[in-house]
């Protein structure tokens, strides 16, 4: 691996001063993407900043405005968090799919988000929960809807000197649930050929869909919302037929490529199947 400077700040202010420096300054959480990228030369760094010792980036707590997850918090902790397991089940589904147990023990949510892979398994679940990203630099903080956070494969809207501090998921309404599924050709340890996260809120009196969110992984240059499918669901009575209509509509939001993992046509079919299945899981979780 090429040489770089290394820092291990214990406060956010100290970290932001480091990120403001000239040159390529890279954040390190679990290292499960960046260390491999540095080894193979796919990314470079003049300085690597280990952000795991900044208390704000390790936050994992429910507050009045929702669930706050610090960018450095490990996926294992997120998957085991009682609030995640009860209210944000799509994110719990996602957390145990990223790499192996060893990876989940080290990798932080912020790393999965900022690595900005189109296939990032946690991202659709965050999108379906209307997550926002709190980012900071020496010139201040701003909040970005996560749906506006991704700019392309491996690219985010973070400016030079800005880092992701935390992700905030608003409190969930009653009669709602989320789910995430991905397809890989084996059981574990692979990159999604396609992934779909869904969120449903139902009106208990007449079973109409009050709110729907569907987000897709691995079928576009960034993770994307399937807005046409959401619109097809909202205001209508949930039924198998409506789920099928939404599943077909979701395919229209996918702009997949053909590669070694699957053809574009195959990915479009997967979007339909996984949308149908995740909506069904949401329905079961709401009733169950």
């Amino acid at each position: 691996m090429p040489d770089f400077d290394f820092a291990q700040p214990t406060s956010l202010d100290e970290a932001l001063a480091l990120f403001a420096a000239e040159g390529e300054v890279r954040a390190l959480v679990g290292g499960t993407d960046i260390v491999d990228q540095l080894k193979t030369g796919r990314r470079n760094a003049d300085m690597v900043v280990d952000v795991k010792r900044i208390p704000e980036l390790q936050r994992l707590e429910m507050a009045d405005d929702g669930l706050h997850i610090g960018a450095a918090r490990a996926l294992t902790d997120i998957g085991e968090c009682p609030a995640v397991r009860s209210d944000y089940r799509g994110l719990a589904d996602s957390s145990v799919l990223v790499g192996s147990w060893q990876i989940q023990n080290r990798a932080g949510l912020g790393g999965n988000v900022c690595n900005a892979a189109p296939s990032g398994d946690t991202i659709p679940s965050l999108l379906t929960h209307d997550a926002s990203a709190i980012v900071a630099s020496t010139s201040g903080r701003r909040e970005i809807a996560l749906s506006d956070f991704f700019a392309g494969p491996g690219q985010t809207v973070l400016q030079k000197g800005e880092i992701l501090v935390e992700v905030v998921l608003p409190p969930i309404p009653d009669n709602s649930a989320s789910a995430y599924l991905r397809f890989i050709p084996r059981n574990e340890m692979d990159i999604a050929v396609a992934g779909v996260g869904s969120f449903l809120q139902l009106n208990p009196s007449d079973n109409t869909v009050q709110k729907a969110r569907i987000a897709l992984a691995s079928v576009a240059p960034t993770p994307v919302r399937a807005r046409a499918a959401e619109e097809a669901l909202e205001g209508n009575v949930l039924s198998d037929e409506l789920i099928e209509t939404a599943a077909v509509a979701a395919v229209g939001s996918a702009t997949p490529i053909s590669d070694v993992r699957g053809s574009a046509e195959y990915r479009r079919e997967l979007v339909k199947v996984l949308t149908r299945r995740t909506l069904g899981i949401c329905r079961d979780r709401i009733s169950g």
Binding site: F6, Q8, L28, V35, D50, W101, Q102, N105
Partner: peptide, 14 residues
């Protein structure tokens, strides 16, 4: 906790 030591920097381990 288990980890892949090939993806961990020694500098992190203080």
């Amino acid at each position: 906790r288990t980890a892949n030591s090939c993806l961990v920097l020694a500098a992190e381990m203080d």
